[in-house]
Design a binder for these strands. Structure first.
Length: 301
DNA sequence: ACGAATCCTGGGCA
DNA sequence: ATGCCCAGGATTC
Protein backbone atom coordinates (compact mmCIF):
# COMPACT_ATOMS: atom_id res chain seq x y z
CA UNK A 1 0.00 0.00 0.00
CA UNK A 2 1.44 3.30 -1.13
CA UNK A 3 1.78 6.26 1.18
CA UNK A 4 2.13 9.87 0.17
CA UNK A 5 5.18 11.97 0.84
CA UNK A 6 3.21 15.11 0.04
CA UNK A 7 5.80 16.82 -2.11
CA UNK A 8 5.32 18.39 -5.53
CA UNK A 9 7.49 17.52 -8.55
CA UNK A 10 8.88 21.06 -8.46
CA UNK A 11 10.25 20.28 -5.00
CA UNK A 12 11.37 16.70 -5.67
CA UNK A 13 11.89 14.79 -8.87
CA UNK A 14 13.22 11.29 -8.34
CA UNK A 15 14.29 10.62 -11.91
CA UNK A 16 17.46 12.71 -11.88
CA UNK A 17 17.97 13.11 -8.13
CA UNK A 18 18.36 9.38 -7.46
CA UNK A 19 20.70 8.49 -10.30
CA UNK A 20 22.89 11.54 -10.96
CA UNK A 21 25.83 10.28 -8.93
CA UNK A 22 24.98 11.43 -5.41
CA UNK A 23 23.96 7.98 -4.28
CA UNK A 24 24.68 4.78 -6.18
CA UNK A 25 22.09 2.66 -4.40
CA UNK A 26 18.91 3.33 -6.39
CA UNK A 27 17.76 1.20 -9.28
CA UNK A 28 14.91 1.99 -11.67
CA UNK A 29 12.47 -0.92 -11.46
CA UNK A 30 9.67 0.40 -13.67
CA UNK A 31 8.55 3.58 -15.33
CA UNK A 32 8.72 6.29 -12.64
CA UNK A 33 9.63 3.75 -9.92
CA UNK A 34 12.89 3.23 -8.08
CA UNK A 35 13.99 0.88 -5.32
CA UNK A 36 16.88 1.30 -2.96
CA UNK A 37 18.10 1.10 0.61
CA UNK A 38 18.23 3.86 3.19
CA UNK A 39 19.59 2.82 6.56
CA UNK A 40 18.01 -0.61 7.13
CA UNK A 41 14.88 -0.06 5.04
CA UNK A 42 14.21 -1.26 1.52
CA UNK A 43 12.25 1.57 -0.01
CA UNK A 44 10.27 1.85 -3.20
CA UNK A 45 9.47 5.27 -4.62
CA UNK A 46 6.94 6.22 -7.27
CA UNK A 47 6.84 9.57 -8.94
CA UNK A 48 3.39 10.82 -9.93
CA UNK A 49 2.27 14.05 -11.58
CA UNK A 50 1.54 15.63 -8.21
CA UNK A 51 3.47 13.74 -5.56
CA UNK A 52 6.01 11.11 -4.63
CA UNK A 53 4.63 7.89 -3.15
CA UNK A 54 6.57 5.38 -1.10
CA UNK A 55 6.54 1.89 0.36
CA UNK A 56 9.01 0.34 2.74
CA UNK A 57 10.15 -2.98 4.17
CA UNK A 58 10.07 -3.70 7.02
CA UNK A 59 8.94 -0.45 8.62
CA UNK A 60 5.86 1.11 7.20
CA UNK A 61 5.91 4.80 7.92
CA UNK A 62 9.31 6.01 6.84
CA UNK A 63 8.15 9.54 6.06
CA UNK A 64 10.51 11.07 8.65
CA UNK A 65 13.40 9.05 7.23
CA UNK A 66 12.58 10.18 3.70
CA UNK A 67 12.05 13.81 4.63
CA UNK A 68 15.49 13.77 6.19
CA UNK A 69 17.09 11.92 3.26
CA UNK A 70 15.64 14.33 0.72
CA UNK A 71 16.15 17.37 3.02
CA UNK A 72 12.55 18.44 2.42
CA UNK A 73 12.87 21.11 5.10
CA UNK A 74 14.79 23.08 2.47
CA UNK A 75 12.33 24.70 0.02
CA UNK A 76 13.82 24.19 -3.44
CA UNK A 77 11.60 26.38 -5.61
CA UNK A 78 12.74 29.66 -4.05
CA UNK A 79 16.36 28.57 -4.44
CA UNK A 80 15.86 27.87 -8.15
CA UNK A 81 14.36 31.35 -8.46
CA UNK A 82 17.32 32.89 -6.72
CA UNK A 83 19.86 30.98 -8.83
CA UNK A 84 18.08 31.87 -12.09
CA UNK A 85 18.29 35.51 -11.08
CA UNK A 86 21.96 35.16 -10.26
CA UNK A 87 22.97 33.43 -13.46
CA UNK A 88 21.54 33.37 -16.99
CA UNK A 89 23.36 30.15 -17.71
CA UNK A 90 21.69 28.42 -14.79
CA UNK A 91 18.34 29.80 -15.96
CA UNK A 92 18.84 28.22 -19.38
CA UNK A 93 19.40 24.66 -18.10
CA UNK A 94 17.33 24.60 -14.90
CA UNK A 95 13.95 24.08 -16.65
CA UNK A 96 15.24 20.69 -17.84
CA UNK A 97 15.95 19.65 -14.24
CA UNK A 98 13.14 20.69 -11.92
CA UNK A 99 13.15 19.21 -8.44
CA UNK A 100 16.80 18.19 -8.42
CA UNK A 101 17.85 18.04 -4.78
CA UNK A 102 21.00 17.30 -2.87
CA UNK A 103 20.50 14.14 -0.84
CA UNK A 104 21.53 13.71 2.76
CA UNK A 105 23.21 10.34 2.47
CA UNK A 106 24.96 8.38 5.17
CA UNK A 107 28.57 9.59 5.60
CA UNK A 108 30.08 6.10 5.60
CA UNK A 109 28.21 5.15 2.45
CA UNK A 110 29.11 8.47 0.88
CA UNK A 111 32.82 8.28 1.68
CA UNK A 112 33.32 4.75 0.40
CA UNK A 113 31.21 5.38 -2.68
CA UNK A 114 33.38 8.29 -3.70
CA UNK A 115 36.58 6.44 -2.87
CA UNK A 116 35.47 4.18 -5.71
CA UNK A 117 34.76 7.08 -8.04
CA UNK A 118 38.24 8.12 -9.08
CA UNK A 119 38.87 7.77 -12.81
CA UNK A 120 35.60 5.89 -13.03
CA UNK A 121 32.08 6.31 -14.35
CA UNK A 122 28.65 6.19 -12.74
CA UNK A 123 27.41 2.86 -14.18
CA UNK A 124 30.56 1.08 -13.07
CA UNK A 125 30.62 2.73 -9.64
CA UNK A 126 27.04 1.56 -9.20
CA UNK A 127 28.04 -2.03 -9.97
CA UNK A 128 30.99 -1.85 -7.57
CA UNK A 129 28.88 -0.49 -4.71
CA UNK A 130 26.31 -3.18 -5.42
CA UNK A 131 28.99 -5.86 -5.10
CA UNK A 132 30.32 -4.27 -1.91
CA UNK A 133 26.91 -4.33 -0.22
CA UNK A 134 26.12 -7.86 -1.29
CA UNK A 135 29.43 -9.15 -0.01
CA UNK A 136 29.91 -7.16 3.21
CA UNK A 137 26.51 -5.71 4.11
CA UNK A 138 23.80 -7.27 6.25
CA UNK A 139 21.04 -8.80 4.15
CA UNK A 140 17.76 -7.00 4.75
CA UNK A 141 15.11 -8.54 2.55
CA UNK A 142 14.29 -10.15 -0.74
CA UNK A 143 11.89 -8.16 -2.89
CA UNK A 144 10.61 -9.46 -6.22
CA UNK A 145 13.50 -11.89 -6.52
CA UNK A 146 16.26 -9.44 -5.64
CA UNK A 147 18.24 -9.38 -2.38
CA UNK A 148 18.79 -6.03 -0.71
CA UNK A 149 21.61 -5.32 1.72
CA UNK A 150 22.56 -2.65 4.15
CA UNK A 151 25.66 -0.66 3.34
CA UNK A 152 28.62 -2.32 5.11
CA UNK A 153 29.99 -0.83 8.32
CA UNK A 154 33.59 0.38 8.39
CA UNK A 155 34.32 -2.55 10.67
CA UNK A 156 33.08 -5.05 8.10
CA UNK A 157 35.14 -3.32 5.42
CA UNK A 158 38.19 -3.18 7.67
CA UNK A 159 38.02 -6.97 7.94
CA UNK A 160 37.95 -7.36 4.17
CA UNK A 161 41.07 -8.25 2.24
CA UNK A 162 42.49 -6.16 -0.52
CA UNK A 163 42.74 -9.24 -2.72
CA UNK A 164 39.05 -9.97 -2.33
CA UNK A 165 38.06 -6.44 -3.30
CA UNK A 166 40.39 -6.64 -6.23
CA UNK A 167 38.64 -9.82 -7.30
CA UNK A 168 35.34 -7.95 -7.08
CA UNK A 169 36.64 -5.59 -9.74
CA UNK A 170 37.74 -2.61 -7.65
CA UNK A 171 41.08 -2.30 -9.40
CA UNK A 172 43.61 -0.06 -7.66
CA UNK A 173 40.77 1.27 -5.47
CA UNK A 174 40.78 -2.01 -3.51
CA UNK A 175 43.77 -0.87 -1.48
CA UNK A 176 42.28 2.57 -0.82
CA UNK A 177 38.99 1.13 0.45
CA UNK A 178 40.66 -1.29 2.85
CA UNK A 179 43.17 1.27 4.10
CA UNK A 180 40.54 3.92 4.83
CA UNK A 181 38.24 1.34 6.44
CA UNK A 182 41.01 0.28 8.83
CA UNK A 183 41.93 3.85 9.64
CA UNK A 184 38.30 4.74 10.30
CA UNK A 185 37.68 1.68 12.44
CA UNK A 186 40.53 2.88 14.64
CA UNK A 187 39.18 6.41 14.84
CA UNK A 188 35.67 4.99 15.25
CA UNK A 189 32.74 5.58 12.93
CA UNK A 190 31.64 8.44 15.20
CA UNK A 191 34.66 10.43 14.08
CA UNK A 192 33.07 10.73 10.66
CA UNK A 193 29.58 11.58 11.95
CA UNK A 194 30.94 14.28 14.21
CA UNK A 195 32.17 16.19 11.15
CA UNK A 196 28.54 17.18 10.66
CA UNK A 197 28.94 19.52 13.63
CA UNK A 198 32.04 21.27 12.26
CA UNK A 199 32.19 24.26 9.90
CA UNK A 200 32.66 23.40 6.23
CA UNK A 201 36.37 24.21 5.95
CA UNK A 202 37.26 22.26 9.07
CA UNK A 203 35.26 19.21 8.06
CA UNK A 204 36.82 19.34 4.60
CA UNK A 205 40.36 19.52 5.98
CA UNK A 206 39.72 16.73 8.48
CA UNK A 207 38.56 14.47 5.66
CA UNK A 208 41.72 15.04 3.65
CA UNK A 209 43.75 13.56 6.52
CA UNK A 210 42.42 10.19 5.35
CA UNK A 211 44.69 8.43 2.83
CA UNK A 212 43.22 8.57 -0.66
CA UNK A 213 40.94 11.51 0.13
CA UNK A 214 41.77 14.72 -1.73
CA UNK A 215 39.80 17.94 -2.16
CA UNK A 216 37.30 16.54 -4.59
CA UNK A 217 36.23 13.51 -2.56
CA UNK A 218 36.24 15.58 0.62
CA UNK A 219 33.85 18.04 -1.02
CA UNK A 220 31.58 15.24 -2.21
CA UNK A 221 31.33 13.87 1.33
CA UNK A 222 30.77 17.38 2.72
CA UNK A 223 28.00 18.19 0.25
CA UNK A 224 26.17 14.88 0.04
CA UNK A 225 26.40 13.70 3.64
CA UNK A 226 27.79 16.27 6.07
CA UNK A 227 25.32 19.16 5.77
CA UNK A 228 27.73 21.50 3.97
CA UNK A 229 25.58 22.94 1.15
CA UNK A 230 28.34 25.35 0.12
CA UNK A 231 30.81 22.59 -0.81
CA UNK A 232 31.68 22.49 -4.53
CA UNK A 233 33.23 19.23 -5.75
CA UNK A 234 35.23 20.10 -8.85
CA UNK A 235 35.46 16.99 -11.00
CA UNK A 236 36.31 16.88 -14.70
CA UNK A 237 32.78 17.94 -15.64
CA UNK A 238 32.70 20.93 -13.31
CA UNK A 239 36.19 21.81 -14.47
CA UNK A 240 34.88 21.88 -18.05
CA UNK A 241 31.88 23.98 -17.00
CA UNK A 242 34.07 26.45 -15.15
CA UNK A 243 36.44 26.95 -18.10
CA UNK A 244 33.65 27.19 -20.67
CA UNK A 245 30.96 29.17 -18.86
CA UNK A 246 32.34 31.03 -15.88
CA UNK A 247 36.11 31.49 -15.81
CA UNK A 248 37.39 31.43 -19.41
CA UNK A 249 40.68 32.87 -18.21
CA UNK A 250 41.37 29.42 -16.77
CA UNK A 251 41.44 27.81 -20.22
CA UNK A 252 44.81 26.21 -20.82
CA UNK A 253 45.59 26.09 -17.10
CA UNK A 254 45.57 22.86 -15.18
CA UNK A 255 43.39 22.05 -12.20
CA UNK A 256 45.83 22.85 -9.41
CA UNK A 257 44.92 23.35 -5.78
CA UNK A 258 44.68 27.12 -6.28
CA UNK A 259 42.48 26.81 -9.33
CA UNK A 260 40.32 24.27 -7.53
CA UNK A 261 39.72 26.73 -4.72
CA UNK A 262 39.13 29.59 -7.14
CA UNK A 263 36.33 27.68 -8.86
CA UNK A 264 34.61 26.85 -5.58
CA UNK A 265 34.86 30.45 -4.44
CA UNK A 266 33.37 31.64 -7.72
CA UNK A 267 30.36 29.36 -7.38
CA UNK A 268 29.87 30.33 -3.73
CA UNK A 269 30.02 34.03 -4.55
CA UNK A 270 27.55 33.62 -7.40
CA UNK A 271 25.02 31.21 -5.92
CA UNK A 272 25.27 31.82 -2.20
CA UNK A 273 24.76 29.58 0.81
CA UNK A 274 23.43 26.62 -1.19
CA UNK A 275 25.96 26.92 -4.01
CA UNK A 276 26.63 23.20 -3.88
CA UNK A 277 22.99 22.52 -4.68
CA UNK A 278 23.13 24.86 -7.69
CA UNK A 279 26.38 23.27 -8.80
CA UNK A 280 24.64 19.89 -8.68
CA UNK A 281 22.10 21.04 -11.28
CA UNK A 282 24.81 22.34 -13.59
CA UNK A 283 26.72 19.11 -13.08
CA UNK A 284 23.73 16.92 -13.94
CA UNK A 285 23.18 18.90 -17.13
CA UNK A 286 26.71 17.96 -18.13
CA UNK A 287 26.34 14.19 -17.66
CA UNK A 288 26.08 12.10 -20.82
CA UNK A 289 22.96 10.42 -19.43
CA UNK A 290 21.10 13.72 -19.11
CA UNK A 291 22.59 15.99 -21.75
CA UNK A 292 19.76 15.12 -24.15
CA UNK A 293 17.30 16.82 -21.82
CA UNK A 294 19.12 20.11 -22.18
CA UNK A 295 19.25 19.78 -25.95
CA UNK A 296 15.55 18.93 -26.10
CA UNK A 297 14.73 21.94 -23.99
CA UNK A 298 16.74 24.27 -26.17
CA UNK A 299 15.18 22.82 -29.32
CA UNK A 300 11.69 23.53 -28.01
CA UNK A 301 12.45 27.20 -27.61
C1' DA B 1 53.91 25.51 -6.98
C1' DC B 2 53.29 23.08 -11.05
C1' DG B 3 52.96 19.33 -14.49
C1' DA B 4 53.09 14.62 -15.83
C1' DA B 5 52.92 9.77 -15.18
C1' DT B 6 50.80 6.03 -12.75
C1' DC B 7 47.04 3.13 -11.20
C1' DC B 8 42.50 -1.19 -12.75
C1' DT B 9 38.75 -1.61 -15.74
C1' DG B 10 35.00 -1.09 -19.20
C1' DG B 11 32.81 1.30 -22.88
C1' DG B 12 32.87 4.16 -26.98
C1' DC B 13 35.02 5.19 -30.96
C1' DA B 14 37.97 5.44 -35.05
C1' DA C 1 39.58 -6.78 -34.56
C1' DT C 2 42.76 -3.61 -32.22
C1' DG C 3 44.32 0.34 -30.08
C1' DC C 4 43.34 4.59 -27.96
C1' DC C 5 40.87 7.66 -25.07
C1' DC C 6 38.25 8.77 -21.35
C1' DA C 7 35.44 8.18 -17.23
C1' DG C 8 32.90 12.31 -10.92
C1' DG C 9 41.13 11.50 -8.80
C1' DA C 10 45.01 11.00 -5.44
C1' DT C 11 49.73 10.38 -5.07
C1' DT C 12 54.41 10.40 -6.28
C1' DC C 13 58.27 12.38 -8.36
Amino acid sequence: MWRSLGVSPEELRCDVTLVCGQSFRWKPIAQNEWRGVISSCVITLRQTAYDVLYRSIPKDDVAPLLRDYFQLHVPLVPLYGQWCQADARFASVAPAFPGLRVLRTDPVECLFSFLCSSANNIPRITRMIDALCRRYGTRLAEVEGTDYHRFPTVYALAAASEEELFALGFGYRARVVVTVARELSERGEEWLYRLRNLPYEEAHDELTTLPGVGHKIADCVCLFSLDKPQAIPVDTHVWQIAQRDYLPELQGRSLTERVYRQIGDHFRARFGEYAGWAHNVLFAAELPAFRRRVLALQRDR
